[in-house]
Protein backbone atom coordinates (compact mmCIF):
# COMPACT_ATOMS: atom_id res chain seq x y z
CA UNK A 1 0.00 0.00 0.00
CA UNK A 2 1.26 3.45 -0.97
CA UNK A 3 -0.11 6.60 0.59
CA UNK A 4 1.44 10.05 0.26
CA UNK A 5 -0.15 13.29 1.39
CA UNK A 6 1.13 16.59 0.03
CA UNK A 7 0.63 19.68 2.18
CA UNK A 8 -0.25 21.54 -1.00
CA UNK A 9 -1.44 20.17 -4.34
CA UNK A 10 0.61 22.87 -6.07
CA UNK A 11 3.87 20.95 -5.59
CA UNK A 12 2.77 17.87 -7.54
CA UNK A 13 1.11 20.14 -10.12
CA UNK A 14 4.40 21.94 -10.72
CA UNK A 15 6.33 18.67 -10.95
CA UNK A 16 3.93 17.19 -13.50
CA UNK A 17 3.81 20.42 -15.53
CA UNK A 18 7.62 20.40 -15.66
CA UNK A 19 7.72 16.82 -16.98
CA UNK A 20 4.69 16.26 -19.17
CA UNK A 21 5.95 17.97 -22.31
CA UNK A 22 9.19 15.96 -22.30
CA UNK A 23 7.73 12.55 -21.57
CA UNK A 24 4.15 11.43 -22.08
CA UNK A 25 4.26 8.60 -19.57
CA UNK A 26 6.64 7.22 -16.97
CA UNK A 27 6.97 4.83 -14.06
CA UNK A 28 6.74 6.23 -10.54
CA UNK A 29 8.90 3.96 -8.41
CA UNK A 30 7.65 4.04 -4.83
CA UNK A 31 9.72 2.80 -1.89
CA UNK A 32 9.71 3.44 1.84
CA UNK A 33 12.11 6.36 1.20
CA UNK A 34 9.92 8.18 -1.30
CA UNK A 35 9.05 8.29 -4.97
CA UNK A 36 11.49 8.41 -7.88
CA UNK A 37 11.18 8.61 -11.63
CA UNK A 38 13.62 8.20 -14.47
CA UNK A 39 12.31 8.94 -17.94
CA UNK A 40 13.82 9.82 -21.31
CA UNK A 41 12.18 11.91 -24.03
CA UNK A 42 11.31 10.35 -27.39
CA UNK A 43 14.42 11.64 -29.10
CA UNK A 44 16.65 10.10 -26.37
CA UNK A 45 18.37 13.42 -25.77
CA UNK A 46 16.81 14.62 -22.52
CA UNK A 47 16.52 12.55 -19.36
CA UNK A 48 14.40 13.46 -16.35
CA UNK A 49 15.35 12.24 -12.90
CA UNK A 50 12.89 13.02 -10.14
CA UNK A 51 13.24 12.26 -6.45
CA UNK A 52 10.45 13.15 -4.05
CA UNK A 53 11.83 12.16 -0.69
CA UNK A 54 9.56 10.93 2.04
CA UNK A 55 10.10 14.15 4.04
CA UNK A 56 8.44 16.12 1.24
CA UNK A 57 5.14 14.63 2.29
CA UNK A 58 2.97 15.61 5.21
CA UNK A 59 2.32 11.90 5.65
CA UNK A 60 3.92 9.01 3.76
CA UNK A 61 3.84 5.24 3.85
CA UNK A 62 4.87 2.61 1.36
CA UNK A 63 4.77 -0.91 2.74
CA UNK A 64 6.16 -2.63 -0.32
CA UNK A 65 8.06 -1.29 -3.34
CA UNK A 66 5.60 -0.60 -6.13
CA UNK A 67 5.87 0.80 -9.64
CA UNK A 68 3.04 2.95 -10.94
CA UNK A 69 2.90 3.57 -14.70
CA UNK A 70 1.39 7.01 -15.14
CA UNK A 71 0.25 8.94 -18.21
CA UNK A 72 1.42 12.44 -17.36
CA UNK A 73 -1.14 14.21 -19.57
CA UNK A 74 -3.95 12.34 -17.83
CA UNK A 75 -2.47 12.97 -14.38
CA UNK A 76 -2.09 16.65 -15.24
CA UNK A 77 -5.78 16.89 -16.20
CA UNK A 78 -6.91 15.31 -12.95
CA UNK A 79 -4.65 17.23 -10.60
CA UNK A 80 -5.62 20.40 -12.45
CA UNK A 81 -9.06 19.93 -10.88
CA UNK A 82 -7.75 20.56 -7.37
CA UNK A 83 -6.95 23.97 -5.91
CA UNK A 84 -3.27 24.74 -5.38
CA UNK A 85 -3.72 25.01 -1.63
CA UNK A 86 -5.66 21.74 -1.22
CA UNK A 87 -4.17 18.78 0.57
CA UNK A 88 -3.45 16.19 -2.11
CA UNK A 89 -3.24 12.52 -1.22
CA UNK A 90 -2.18 9.87 -3.70
CA UNK A 91 -2.67 6.23 -2.84
CA UNK A 92 -2.51 2.83 -4.49
CA UNK A 93 -2.88 -0.74 -3.35
CA UNK A 94 -0.14 -3.25 -4.04
CA UNK A 95 -0.67 -4.59 -7.60
CA UNK A 96 -3.10 -1.75 -8.22
CA UNK A 97 -4.34 -0.87 -11.68
CA UNK A 98 -5.36 2.61 -10.61
CA UNK A 99 -4.02 5.55 -8.64
CA UNK A 100 -6.38 7.13 -6.16
CA UNK A 101 -6.15 10.94 -5.95
CA UNK A 102 -7.92 12.88 -3.21
CA UNK A 103 -8.10 16.66 -2.76
CA UNK A 104 -9.15 18.14 0.56
CA UNK A 105 -10.11 21.79 0.68
CA UNK A 106 -8.56 23.35 3.78
CA UNK A 107 -11.40 25.79 4.35
CA UNK A 108 -14.56 24.28 2.96
CA UNK A 109 -15.80 20.88 4.01
CA UNK A 110 -15.12 19.44 0.58
CA UNK A 111 -13.33 16.30 -0.53
CA UNK A 112 -12.82 15.39 -4.21
CA UNK A 113 -11.74 11.92 -5.20
CA UNK A 114 -10.46 10.67 -8.55
CA UNK A 115 -9.02 7.46 -9.94
CA UNK A 116 -6.36 7.45 -12.63
CA UNK A 117 -5.98 4.28 -14.69
CA UNK A 118 -2.41 3.07 -14.53
CA UNK A 119 -0.37 1.99 -17.54
CA UNK A 120 2.01 -0.87 -18.11
CA UNK A 121 5.19 0.92 -19.17
CA UNK A 122 8.19 -1.01 -20.38
CA UNK A 123 10.96 1.54 -20.04
CA UNK A 124 14.65 0.79 -20.41
CA UNK A 125 16.65 2.64 -17.80
CA UNK A 126 19.93 4.38 -18.42
CA UNK A 127 22.74 3.89 -15.96
CA UNK A 128 23.26 7.45 -14.75
CA UNK A 129 25.93 7.22 -12.08
CA UNK A 130 27.80 10.00 -10.32
CA UNK A 131 29.43 12.28 -12.88
CA UNK A 132 32.58 14.38 -12.73
CA UNK A 133 31.82 18.06 -12.98
CA UNK A 134 34.14 20.64 -14.56
CA UNK A 135 31.97 23.68 -13.89
CA UNK A 136 28.98 24.42 -11.67
CA UNK A 137 26.78 27.48 -12.05
CA UNK A 138 24.00 28.35 -9.63
CA UNK A 139 21.72 31.21 -10.58
CA UNK A 140 18.12 32.34 -10.10
CA UNK A 141 15.93 29.94 -12.06
CA UNK A 142 13.88 32.82 -13.52
CA UNK A 143 17.07 34.40 -14.88
CA UNK A 144 18.10 31.15 -16.53
CA UNK A 145 14.61 30.77 -18.03
CA UNK A 146 14.82 34.27 -19.51
CA UNK A 147 18.30 33.62 -20.94
CA UNK A 148 17.04 30.44 -22.66
CA UNK A 149 13.92 32.18 -24.03
CA UNK A 150 15.86 35.23 -25.23
CA UNK A 151 18.57 33.20 -26.94
CA UNK A 152 16.05 30.86 -28.59
CA UNK A 153 14.79 33.66 -30.86
CA UNK A 154 18.22 33.64 -32.53
CA UNK A 155 19.21 30.04 -32.90
CA UNK A 156 18.26 26.45 -32.26
CA UNK A 157 21.49 26.08 -30.25
CA UNK A 158 22.68 27.76 -27.09
CA UNK A 159 26.40 27.77 -26.42
CA UNK A 160 27.51 27.97 -22.79
CA UNK A 161 31.11 29.05 -22.18
CA UNK A 162 32.30 29.07 -18.60
CA UNK A 163 35.55 30.65 -17.49
CA UNK A 164 36.92 31.44 -14.04
CA UNK A 165 34.84 34.52 -13.41
CA UNK A 166 31.94 34.39 -15.83
CA UNK A 167 29.44 32.30 -17.74
CA UNK A 168 28.69 33.35 -21.30
CA UNK A 169 25.48 32.27 -23.03
CA UNK A 170 25.78 32.74 -26.76
CA UNK A 171 23.52 32.20 -29.75
CA UNK A 172 24.54 32.57 -33.36
CA UNK A 173 21.77 32.47 -35.94
CA UNK A 174 20.72 33.63 -39.38
CA UNK A 175 19.21 36.89 -38.12
CA UNK A 176 22.12 37.78 -35.87
CA UNK A 177 23.88 36.91 -32.65
CA UNK A 178 23.29 37.31 -28.93
CA UNK A 179 25.55 37.20 -25.89
CA UNK A 180 24.59 37.25 -22.23
CA UNK A 181 27.32 37.25 -19.58
CA UNK A 182 26.69 36.54 -15.93
CA UNK A 183 29.24 36.89 -13.14
CA UNK A 184 29.30 35.63 -9.56
CA UNK A 185 27.38 37.83 -7.16
CA UNK A 186 26.59 37.48 -3.48
CA UNK A 187 23.35 39.10 -2.37
CA UNK A 188 23.15 38.86 1.41
CA UNK A 189 19.69 40.41 1.65
CA UNK A 190 18.29 38.29 -1.16
CA UNK A 191 20.32 35.05 -1.20
CA UNK A 192 18.03 33.62 -3.88
CA UNK A 193 19.42 36.29 -6.23
CA UNK A 194 23.04 35.18 -5.74
CA UNK A 195 25.05 33.71 -8.58
CA UNK A 196 27.92 31.31 -7.99
CA UNK A 197 30.34 29.84 -10.50
CA UNK A 198 32.85 27.18 -9.57
CA UNK A 199 35.27 25.91 -12.12
CA UNK A 200 37.84 23.14 -12.39
CA UNK A 201 38.18 23.35 -16.16
CA UNK A 202 36.88 25.89 -18.69
CA UNK A 203 33.75 24.74 -20.49
CA UNK A 204 32.43 25.28 -23.99
CA UNK A 205 29.28 23.29 -24.71
CA UNK A 206 26.28 23.69 -27.01
CA UNK A 207 22.75 22.54 -26.22
CA UNK A 208 19.56 22.35 -28.26
CA UNK A 209 17.31 25.32 -27.50
CA UNK A 210 14.13 23.29 -27.80
CA UNK A 211 15.25 20.96 -25.00
CA UNK A 212 16.22 23.91 -22.82
CA UNK A 213 12.69 25.23 -23.39
CA UNK A 214 11.38 22.01 -21.87
CA UNK A 215 13.78 22.20 -18.93
CA UNK A 216 12.80 25.73 -17.94
CA UNK A 217 9.21 24.58 -17.44
CA UNK A 218 10.52 23.52 -14.01
CA UNK A 219 11.27 27.15 -13.08
CA UNK A 220 8.35 27.48 -10.66
CA UNK A 221 9.65 24.53 -8.62
CA UNK A 222 12.66 26.35 -7.21
CA UNK A 223 14.02 29.88 -7.05
CA UNK A 224 17.44 28.56 -8.07
CA UNK A 225 18.79 26.23 -10.70
CA UNK A 226 22.16 24.52 -10.54
CA UNK A 227 23.84 23.72 -13.84
CA UNK A 228 26.67 21.17 -13.81
CA UNK A 229 28.78 21.01 -16.93
CA UNK A 230 31.55 18.69 -18.01
CA UNK A 231 33.50 18.71 -21.24
CA UNK A 232 31.80 16.54 -23.89
CA UNK A 233 29.22 15.23 -21.44
CA UNK A 234 25.54 15.82 -20.79
CA UNK A 235 24.69 18.95 -18.86
CA UNK A 236 22.81 18.50 -15.59
CA UNK A 237 20.15 21.07 -14.71
CA UNK A 238 18.87 20.65 -11.16
CA UNK A 239 15.85 22.20 -9.48
CA UNK A 240 15.71 21.39 -5.78
CA UNK A 241 12.47 20.34 -4.15
CA UNK A 242 11.82 20.95 -0.44
CA UNK A 243 13.27 17.44 -0.02
CA UNK A 244 14.49 15.92 -3.24
CA UNK A 245 15.07 17.24 -6.74
CA UNK A 246 14.01 17.39 -10.35
CA UNK A 247 17.07 16.95 -12.57
CA UNK A 248 17.41 17.09 -16.32
CA UNK A 249 20.33 15.49 -18.14
CA UNK A 250 20.71 17.00 -21.60
CA UNK A 251 23.09 15.57 -24.20
CA UNK A 252 25.23 18.29 -25.80
CA UNK A 253 25.58 19.00 -29.49
CA UNK A 254 28.84 18.46 -31.31
CA UNK A 255 30.48 19.96 -34.36
CA UNK A 256 31.04 17.90 -37.43
Amino acid sequence: MLEGKFEEASLLKKIVEAMKDCVSSCNFNCTENGISVQAVDNSRVLLISLLIEKDTFEEYRCDRNITLGVGLGSLSKIIGNGANSDYLTISADDDADKLNIIFEDKVKDKISEYNLKLLDIDADLLDVGPMDTDATITLPSADFAKICKDMKVLSESLQIIVTKDSALFQSVGDIGTGNIVIRPKTDIDHPEESVTISLDKPIDLSFGSKYLSDIIKATSLSQKVTIKLTDQSPGVFEYKLPSGYLRFYLAPKFDE
Binding site: R44, V45, L126
Partner: peptide, 14 residues
Amino acid sequence: PQYQYILKLFFDPE
Protein backbone atom coordinates in the same frame (compact mmCIF):
# COMPACT_ATOMS: atom_id res chain seq x y z
CA PRO B 1 27.09 22.09 -38.81
CA GLN B 2 26.22 20.77 -35.40
CA TYR B 3 24.80 17.38 -34.55
CA GLN B 4 22.97 16.17 -31.49
CA TYR B 5 24.41 13.48 -29.26
CA ILE B 6 21.97 11.02 -27.71
CA LEU B 7 22.21 10.11 -24.02
CA LYS B 8 22.81 6.43 -24.60
CA LEU B 9 26.32 7.24 -25.84
CA PHE B 10 27.22 8.58 -22.41
CA PHE B 11 25.31 6.43 -19.97
CA ASP B 12 25.10 3.07 -21.65
CA PRO B 13 28.21 2.61 -23.78
CA GLU B 14 27.46 -1.08 -24.35
